[in-house]
């Protein structure tokens, strides 16, 4: 019988080192390149835009879903009825600054209805959030 020399089993960590290097690199990449976003229960794909007015820290964000419904926090409402609801919220929080986060496919009608409601609530200017286009 021929006997083969069995190779001594390699130590596990030796092969792990390059893997760890790569994982560390990825970790550092995500740490540096990304920005954290707060979790939201409504998924919207923002419309593309070119201009940026750099409004920051707008206290109230209204989300307009693709089907035209408006979210304020965890409350959902029809765009037509949103004015009253928002007016109450603005009175409670004592602010006039509102951002609208509308889906690109949301009906323009719903956004305009919402903006009309805001005008009636005394909001002269709103901030529409967009995503940077090419």
């Amino acid at each position: 019988m021929i006997e083969f020399d069995e190779e001594p089993p390699r130590r596990q960590f030796e092969t792990l080192v390059p893997l760890i290097n790569v994982v560390f690199l990825l970790l550092i990449f995500f740490l540096l390149a990304g920005t954290m976003k707060p979790a939201e229960d409504v998924a919207v794909s923002l419309p593309e835009g070119m201009l940026n007015d750099r409004e920051q820290e707008v206290p109230t964000t209204l989300i307009v879903e693709a089907d035209g419904f408006v979210w304020l926090g965890d409350r959902v409402m029809d765009a037509q009825l949103s004015g009253v609801m928002v007016e109450k919220h603005l009175k409670d929080t004592n602010t006039k600054r509102v951002a609208i986060k509308a889906d690109a496919d949301a009906p323009a009608e719903a956004v305009l209805q919402l903006m009309e409601g805001l005008r009636e609530a005394g909001v002269e200017q709103v901030t529409i959030l967009t995503e940077r286009g090419q």
Partner: peptide
């Protein structure tokens, strides 16, 4: 940590556009 950052990171460049609200 890697998985955490992969899931919570967004690379979206968010912009804002100020619009005057329309009269009803």
């Amino acid at each position: 940590l890697l998985i955490f950052f992969m899931l919570t990171t967004s690379f979206l460049q968010e912009q804002s556009l100020s619009v005057v609200t329309p009269a009803p």
